[in-house]
């Protein structure tokens, strides 16, 4: 019995020591906090870019390319745009986000953009945000496309029959309804995105994961910082899914 109590005491003592060593000593928890801020910044801007690009891609893919009329050059241009969107989505969905980020950072940025004065000296976080945004946009595009296609065709017909243009019909009638269809899947995409940013350490960004790893390598204790990071990710995704759920319920009011 005494042995068991001793064992527990030792365990508790060493756990307290470990927490002290990894988080409290030298205020190392600050590293985790700063890492969290970076992870959230990445997620936020990547999500913005993802939605904006994704919406454009979705619209490009939704064109009825076999039934275009008008100026032949415009028709050709629109077909090209749709073709580009299809190719882009296939490539982005078919390659890992880490590889995309590495390509964008080491090849596109360091080799090319960095030599152009306008882009030289961009922050790593900005580049990673763009990389994650580009990755996310392909998934968002498919989510939005499905959401728009789920809106009854009669809605478009009703809008057009009133004399609204295709763009106005989209803007006032189809997209507001598509948003409701899209929210659950979009929330899911943001959760994936937040977790995906954990590879930002590959290009030297001290995000939450990288910070936990650094603390581990300095203190020779990975258990506490890694579990801590995992818990913070879990907390963030929970907040995100709860928030999306609330938004969804609010938008369903008219049903």
């Amino acid at each position: 019995m005494d042995g068991l109590i001793n064992w527990f005491e030792n365990l508790a003592g060493s756990f307290a020591d470990a927490v002290y060593m990894t988080l409290i000593n030298n205020d190392q928890y600050n590293l985790l906090l700063q890492g969290l801020v970076k992870s959230l910044t990445l997620t936020f801007f990547a999500a913005l870019i993802g939605i904006a690009l994704g919406l454009l891609l979705a619209i490009a893919k939704l064109q009825d390319v076999n039934n275009l009329t008008g100026n032949p050059f415009v028709v050709w241009l629109r077909k090209m745009v749709t073709g580009f969107a299809n190719g882009y989505i296939s490539v982005i969905r078919g390659t890992p986000a880490v590889v995309q980020m590495l390509v964008i950072y080491f090849i596109l940025y360091l080799r090319i953009l960095n030599n152009i004065p306008l882009f030289a000296g961009m922050s790593d976080v900005a580049i990673a945000s763009i990389a994650f945004g580009i990755n996310s946009s392909a998934y968002v595009a498919e989510v939005i496309r499905a959401g728009i296609m789920a809106v009854d065709k009669g809605q478009t017909e009703a809008g057009r029959s009133l004399g609204l243009s295709g763009r106005q019909t989209m803007q006032y009638i189809v997209i507001p309804q598509a948003v409701k269809n899209v929210l659950p899947a979009l929330g899911n995409e943001f959760i994936v995105l937040l977790k995906e940013t954990s590879v930002a350490g590959y290009i030297g960004i001290a995000d939450l994961t990288k910070a936990a790893q650094s603390i581990g390598s300095v203190t020779y204790n990975y258990i506490v910082p890694l579990l801590c990071a995992a818990y913070v990710y879990f907390l963030m995704t929970t907040v995100l899914s709860t928030g999306m759920g609330m938004l969804e319920r609010r938008l369903r009011k008219s049903d």
Partner: peptide
């Protein structure tokens, strides 16, 4: 005058079998 189709449609109202009211 296919380019003015939106203008022409303003002059032609339509009522559908499935109503097609905007639910939102």
């Amino acid at each position: 005058n296919l380019r003015q189709i939106d203008k022409l449609r303003q002059k032609v109202g339509m009522v559908f079998q499935q109503f097609n009211l905007f639910p939102h």
